[in-house]
Structures are given as C-alpha cells and as structure tokens.
Amino acid sequence: MRVKASPFFWVSFAMVVGVMGTALISPLYALYQDAWQLKASDISLIYVIYMAGALCGLLFLGRLPDRLGFRPMLRLGLILALLGTLITLAAWDLVSLCAGRFVVGIASSLLTTSATLGLARLVPAHRKPRLAMITSIVMVFGFGLGPLVGGLFGQWVPHPLITTYLPTLVLGSLALAIFLRLELPDDAGQPFQWRDALPRLTWPAPSASFAFILTSCLAFLAFASFGLYASLSPLFLDQLVPWHGPVVSGTAIAAILFGSAFTQILSGRLSTHWGGSLGLVALGVSNLLLMANLWAGSASLFALGVALTAIGHGLSQLAGMNMVGRIATPDTRAGLFSSYLVIGYIGSMVPMMGIGWIADHWGMSAALCTFCTFATLIAVTVALLFQRHPLMQPPRE
C-alpha cells in the first residue's frame, strides 16, 4: 500500500506525536499524588527519572541516526515511545511509573535527533533557508500540545490516569505503521562502531572557558525555571490562582513553551550579549513574582510571571545556542553542544530534587522561596557578567 502525503510531512507528524507523548504527564502529577499518596520528592523524582532517560538518550544514542540512518532510529524511537507510554498507563506504583518515564525519556531524545536529521534530509530546496525555524516550530508544537492535551483529559475525561495516554498510543501506532510502509531514501552513513555509543563531550580552550561557563548558566537556569513548572506546578498552583485542576497547570506549561518559541522567532536579530542578559533578568524577575505571589495569590501576577518565564526561556536558549556556536571550533562543535545540553539537563534535575526534599521537610512555600531566591541571585549575577564579557560582544567590522 502506498502512503500519500510527503515524507517531510510524516517525519514532522512523527516528531509531534512522539514529543507530545513525553509531556502529557505533567498536568497529572497532582492526580498521581492523590491516588498513591506520594510526597513532593516522589513527584520530582518522576520528572528527574524522565530527564535522566532523555539525557542517556542524548549521550549514548544521539549519534546513531547519523550512522544508521534516521529512518530506523525514528522507528525505534516510536516503538520505545509506545512501550514507555504503555508502561506508564499500566503503572501501579512509583517504581513502575518511573520505569515507564525513563523509557519515554530515551524515546524523546531518539525521536528529536532522528526526526531533526530526517527533516534536514527531506526538506524541499525552497524551504532550506527556514529549516531551523521549521524544525523548532514542529518540536515546540509537539511539546506544547502534550500538556494541553494532558490538562484537558485530566480535568474533564473519566479515568484520566489511563485515558490521557490513549491519543499517544493511537497516533503513535499510526505513525509507526506509516513508517513501516513509507518509501524513504537510504540515508545510512558510516558503519556503526561501538565508539559511536560513547558520550562525546568537550570543553573549550582556556581563553573561552569562562565564557562557556556563563553561557552554560543560561541553559541551567532556563531548564531549571521551566522544570519547576513542568514537574511541580500542579502541586503549588492552588496557592497562586483561583482556578484549580490539571488544565490550569497544563495551560501554563504550554504557554511557556509556545511563548519561548515565539520569543526566539521575534528576537533573531537581537545581539547576543543583550539577549542573554535580558533573558536572565526576565527569569530572575519571574522567580521574584512567583515568590511574591505565594502571599498575594494574584492571577495577574501569575500570568505575568508565566509570560516572563517564557520570554526569559526563549532569550536564554537563543543566546546560549548562539554563543556555543561562536565559541566552538569545527572540531569541537558537536561535543560542545552536547556539553551545553548536559548542563541544561542537570539544571532540570538537581534543583527539582532539592525542591522536593525541602518541600517534604518544610513545606512547598519554603521550597519555592529557596529556589526562587537562589535562581534570582544567580540570574542577576550572570546577567551582569554575560553582558560585559568581551566574547559576548558583537564582532567589530
């Protein structure tokens, strides 16, 4: 049977479905907490385990699409996404849920790397200049769609801890069936060697070392600020806004992702030193607003905080990627990007575990205040250093 529509469309479809499934669970954390009597640290552990799976996928499987071709790796990613979603759906305790989320994390990295390569190989010639923007939009659309769907199902569909995952299973199975029949060009590269599965991390030359540390702080704070909403927002939003339920946290998470992408599109011409410093200031102010809103309980402050988090996330990510590209040499580019992303992933893991532990012992308000205080101090300090560092300045003509 011949599959209609272009391969470019179906690769985009697979990316959207795959990454959508990874983010479905975020608005449901409060439901899991009520159903299984979980602690805040248990919820943060579920998120950290997912991020650990994504990190392992990036480190150990990130280069396989280049070696074996994007088509088989995309199929493997879809299979792992379906398997992880099935385990998550059938989970009966914390351990089984964490196992499912770890598999989903691996699938997330494998799908994003293989689909990104696939889009680059299949993009029509007239769209090549806009490939990076198209890829970013497709990816963000999938990640943003996940918490929206999860929030809607969690709020209004019966048995949400089961039914929420059905769209991913149906659409993922459809994508897999299509890719088993879809005719694609043979894109396999060099033969696979065991070294291809080893992490490839590099550090810049000593002259650029401090600049890279400052740049990595952008990723660390951006990932940490978003991770706070993606993992624990269902547990504290009741203190901030008059509305309740999974759809509130799902909408907030999606708004940050969509707002971040929109910010990057609009800020493409902003100089790197201003983009990075303004992004850090926005993240710092957003954390101050979050902390203040624990006492104010204002929906307007909450909305402003979410908007600033989105803007700060987008500006920081854009400036960070630009700076890595500027610091790297042709021989260190891939390894330096991997090192930058690893630091970002650590930012979404270590602070979340700390917040969960503090919340268990002293309450969620104390945990949020601790995180927001440290995040603001780091953001302001790095913003000043980043704005003035000579390597961040525009090149002189």
Rank of each mutant, 00 (worst) to 15 (best):
N293E: 04
R326C: 06
N293A: 12
I327W: 00
G305I: 10
Q317W: 03
A307D: 03
A307F: 09
L318A: 12
T329V: 09
D331I: 04
P330Y: 12
H313N: 15
G314T: 10
A319H: 05
L315W: 01
M323D: 06
A319F: 04
T329W: 03
L304R: 01
H313C: 13
M321H: 09
N322M: 11
G312N: 05
N293L: 13
H313M: 12
G314R: 05
W295C: 06
I311T: 11
L315E: 02
F302R: 04
D331R: 14
Q317S: 10
V324A: 02
A328L: 10
I311Y: 01
A307P: 01
S300I: 14
N293F: 04
S300D: 05
I311D: 00
I327A: 02
V324S: 05
I327G: 02
A296C: 11
L301D: 06
V306F: 04
P330M: 14
A310M: 10
T332P: 01
L308A: 07
A328T: 11
A303H: 02
A328C: 11
L315I: 08
S298F: 00
V324K: 04
I327P: 01
T332F: 01
R326P: 02
M323H: 03
D331A: 15
D331H: 14
S316A: 15
H313R: 01
W295A: 15
A319V: 08
A319G: 08
R326G: 06
N322E: 12
L308I: 09
Q317M: 14
G320E: 07
G305A: 13
P330A: 13
L301N: 05
M321L: 14
A319C: 08
L301M: 15
A299P: 00
L315S: 04
N322P: 00
R333P: 00
S316F: 02
A292L: 15
V324M: 06
V306K: 09
I327D: 03
A296M: 15
G305S: 15
V306Q: 07
T332Y: 01
S300W: 14
N293D: 13
T329A: 11
A292E: 14
A292C: 12
L318E: 03
L318R: 03
L308M: 07
A292N: 11
R326E: 08
G325D: 14
Q317I: 10
G305Q: 12
G297Y: 09
D331E: 15
Q317N: 12
L315M: 10
T332E: 10
G312Q: 07
R333M: 12
A299N: 05
I311S: 07
